[in-house]
């Protein structure tokens, strides 16, 4: 099993993004997904900037994939998606059927986590159209994945979301702008102030969700670190680590170590718990509510 670095889902300052990937070039990840998946207003980096980062990472031996926006509404967003689809150099992660339509039958692609692939027939079609890899929707369980993998089109790789705040929903509305009392059209890019999302708490003051612009994430950080032996045994090809604003180098190291040693260790789990931005959860993987944590090594 290999490790991948998911796209940065937050709005970080331009320099921070460049610095992040300069460091990531040395991390033990095989694949790096690049680009803006959440909000088209976050355009501090243009496609050429992403291509420059892609070149540097490719030169460092990484497989680079360009991810497309999950929610496509405006014509400008569709244009940008088509330009990514036609980049001609790097594989594309299609996060909407519009993007699948742009790459189908033309170039190999990754069927992203927002495509809703829940069964064999869907995956067979995507494979026929050129998908060489699919990313499981985050709400599916190990049990379902096992059944899907038993009949997966041959040669198709499976990737699972293994670390990070879970992308749970998208909306036309921007919840950060709403919290700031601003209209979305004049949002002033306030997401820049929330480098891991804006916490939403229930009235008994428990962290519940994290608002990331038009995306709603979990307040918990999903971690399948303790489930790595099972993932490997099942034949999952890639485990996706979704970037958070700090400690990512150590987090990647912990997962790489666990993979190398092929075992679960409570020290590693505790170390990850300290580094993760939210409390750890793995409920979806275990067929439970996503926010729950199952099989604590303690």
């Amino acid at each position: 099993m290999k490790l991948s670095l998911g796209p940065i889902l937050y709005l970080w300052p331009r320099e921070q993004v460049f610095d992040f990937y300069r460091e990531a070039a040395d991390w033990p990840v095989d694949t790096v997904y690049l680009g803006e998946v959440v909000c088209s207003k976050r355009n501090a980096l243009k496609l050429d900037d992403w291509l420059q980062i892609a070149d540097e990472l490719a030169a460092a031996g990484k497989e680079v994939v360009l991810s497309t926006l999950a929610l496509l509404e405006a014509e400008s967003e569709l244009k940008r998606m088509r330009r990514i689809a036609e980049n001609g150099r790097f594989m594309v992660e299609a996060n909407d059927m519009a993007a699948v339509n742009a790459v189908a039958g033309k170039v190999p692609f990754v069927a992203g986590p927002h495509l809703n692939a829940y069964n064999h027939d869907t995956l067979e079609l995507l494979h026929e159209l050129g998908a060489k890899r699919w990313v499981m929707p985050v709400e599916l369980s190990a049990e379902t994945l096992q059944r899907i993998m038993a009949g997966l089109p041959s040669g198709m790789e499976t990737e699972v979301f293994g670390f990070g705040r879970l992308p749970l929903a998208f909306s036309a509305r921007c919840f950060v702008a709403r919290a700031e009392g601003l209209p979305k059209d004049d949002c002033q890019l306030r997401c820049i102030d929330y480098s891991d999302g804006l916490l939403l708490e229930s009235q008994d003051e428990k962290g519940f969700l994290s608002m990331n612009g038009i995306q709603t994430q979990s307040a918990t950080t999903c971690s399948l670190l303790d489930d790595l032996p099972q993932l490997r045994e099942m034949g999952v090809d890639l485990l996706r680590l979704s970037p958070q604003s700090h400690g990512m180098a150590q987090i990647v190291s912990l997962f790489a170590e666990a993979l190398a040693q092929g075992s679960v260790s409570s020290e590693r789990s505790e170390a990850l718990e300290k580094l993760a931005i939210g409390e750890l959860s793995n409920g979806f993987w275990h067929g439970q509510p996503g926010m729950s944590r199952v099989g604590d090594v303690d």
């Binding site: 999950a70 929610l71 929903a169 998208f170 409920g283 067929g287 996503g290």
Partner: peptide, 18 residues
Amino acid sequence: MVEGRCYLSSYVTGESPN
């Protein structure tokens, strides 16, 4: 939320529209 892409319910209850 965009219909078909919302896992809020399964995050809390294990069951979603999808």
